[in-house]
């Protein structure tokens, strides 16, 4: 059964239709890469999945259960949306680390805040805090930043910042991790270090939805690739089919330019 399923997602900004009915599903442990030219709706799709935008139409399912239905017009409270968001992590193109916090604080901030809502927080305050800090530093070790935990974002490179951002997104143990062009703001040399962390996650069967312009990465790591064009999924399939044997003319053009 699919971990996550999007059904007929539509989204317009004013009169511009950005998503014109997008459906896809991701199995547990799969890596789904979304490729396509700028303005094709990739990023909007990702923002919809993370509830940063609200789709006009369509549904999301999580583990087969309805998570979101655009036709349900009853007002959602912030708390409800917050609960839904917690199923997903998002890594931004521009990192968006919190500049006033160290790497470790960036990773542990949200889990510490969330822990305060636990009913047993008051009794076990110190133990819970310790566990969270322990887990956060483990995540930073995992992304190769054991020596940068006390550094502020302005003191580390872009690639290191993005790896902190990945650790931060993992800290809440999401069901699926989303990436929005995670290496577009990095130079090619540094891109490699971020991609290798992502490959490692993929190898550990993290479910990942990746919007990317890194065709090499998409081809190597994806279980499934979606090619988006003008708000629809123009072509999809496994990496070999999409990259090795593109059917639509649009995809052929896109791939020839990207090479």
């Amino acid at each position: 059964m699919a971990v996550f399923e999007a059904k007929n997602i539509q989204k317009s900004f004013g009169k511009t239709e950005v998503l014109k009915g997008v459906s896809f599903e991701i199995e547990k442990g799969e890596v789904l890469c979304v490729i396509g030219s700028s303005g094709s709706g990739k990023t909007t799709l990702l923002r919809c999945v993370n509830f940063l935008e609200t789709p006009d139409k369509g549904q999301f399912f999580l583990n087969g259960n309805l998570l979101f239905d655009a036709s349900d017009k009853t007002a959602k409270t912030d708390a409800e949306i917050r609960q839904k968001r917690l199923h997903f992590g998002l890594v931004f193109q521009s990192f968006n680390l919190f500049p006033q916090y160290t790497a470790l604080q960036n990773v542990s901030l949200a889990p510490l805040l969330l822990a305060k809502e636990r009913p047993d927080y008051k009794e076990n305050k110190n133990r819970i805090k310790e566990e969270i800090l322990q887990h956060s530093s483990e995540l930073l070790v995992k992304v190769g930043l054991s020596d940068k935990m006390g550094n502020y974002p302005c003191q580390i490179s872009g690639g290191q910042q993005q790896r902190v951002a990945i650790a931060r997104a993992l800290a809440l143990k999401p069901d699926m991790l989303c990436f929005d062009e995670p290496t577009s703001a990095l130079d090619p040399e540094i891109t490699v270090e971020v991609l290798s962390v992502m490959k490692e996650l993929a190898a550990e069967d993290m479910t990942m939805l990746v919007v990317t312009h890194e065709m090499g990465f998409a081809r190597e790591v994806s279980d499934k690739v979606i090619f988006m064009d003008d708000g629809i999924i123009a072509e999809q399939g496994n990496a070999e089919a999409v990259f090795g044997n593109p059917k639509s003319k649009r995809l052929q053009e896109f791939l020839s330019v990207m090479k």
Partner: peptide, 8 residues
């Protein structure tokens, strides 16, 4: 947005 997606 970074704060929001982290459930704050």
């Amino acid at each position: 947005e970074a704060g929001q997606v982290l459930g704050m």
